[in-house]
């Protein structure tokens, strides 16, 4: 009884993997993010610094360093805003996974109870 179940599970996982079902349904922000999230308002316009100097959003603080406006997405804060709390477009995926997990938990509970009662009856 155990061997066929394990085999069926392995075959199911391998066939799902072969179909490439994992693509774009997971939480990788870099993969599933809409273009406007990845590009953001900050394009890091070095050439504008030369034209507008200190009046731009960034301020030169030395020969090479610069400071961005706090709380704004830019090349240095991409990691910060690519976290789930800041990426609203994956919240529906979190909800979807929660619903699937609860469904699976209930299914597994009923199935194991059924098998257990048959085993001892």
């Amino acid at each position: 009884m155990r061997l066929p179940l394990a085999t069926v599970l392995c075959v199911a996982i391998l066939s799902l993997a072969a179909s490439g079902c994992g693509k774009r349904i997971d939480y990788d922000v870099g993969e599933v993010a809409p273009p406007e999230h990845l590009s953001g308002p900050d394009e890091h316009p070095h050439h504008q610094h030369d034209q507008h100097g200190a009046e731009s959003a960034e301020q030169m603080t030395g020969a090479r360093g610069h400071v961005h406006t706090p709380g704004v997405r830019n090349h240095g804060t991409m990691w910060f805003f690519n976290q789930p709390w800041a990426a609203r477009f994956i919240w529906s995926k979190i909800l979807r996974d929660s619903a699937i997990l609860v469904g699976l938990a209930i299914l597994l509970l009923l199935l194991s109870r059924h098998v257990h009662s048959r085993r001892w009856s």
Partner: peptide, 26 residues
């Protein structure tokens, strides 16, 4: 987001417990 993350964590916890129970029953 806090509510959603809590829901996700509790859903995963219930799933892991149901898998644990299935193993335990066997």
């Amino acid at each position: 987001y806090f509510l959603l993350a809590c829901l996700y964590g509790l859903a995963y916890t219930s799933f892991m417990l149901s898998v644990a129970l299935a193993v335990f029953r066997e």
